[in-house]
Amino acid sequence: MFNSYLENTLEYYPENCINCHRCIQVCPHNVFTEGNDHVKLTNPTSCIECGACAQNCPNEAIKVEAGVGCAWAMIRAALKGKEMDSGECGCDDDGKSCC
């Protein structure tokens, strides 16, 4: 009850893991831990979908729909008629960003 964070988009394919431990080094929530032949997915529900593991996995053993868990950005995007997942961030919309 009242926990929207039990499911996420993290997918792990241990058969592709080359045991380089990159994911363990980059994960800020200790989702992965060391194993014998490949790393173990120990705390999947702690994942915040930052995407660091998938981005740094050299053998595509991890997939995740990375994004920023920011309600403000999503609501702003929705109000502007954009997709909630558009990845827009509300914190620097002062028109000073060059992109």
């Binding site: 929207s4 964070y5 499911e7 996420n8 988009t9 800020p28 994942c47 915040i48 979908e49 729909e65 990375a66 994004g67 920023v68 868990g69 920011c70 309600a71 403000w72 950005a73 999503m74 609501i75 909630m84 997942d85 509300g90 914190c91």
Partner: peptide, 17 residues
């Protein structure tokens, strides 16, 4: 406040919304 924390996933925040 979710966006100011390093604790929340996009899927979870969307579900909350």
């Amino acid at each position: 406040f979710t966006g100011a924390t390093p604790l929340t996933s996009k899927s979870g925040v969307k579900k909350e919304i």
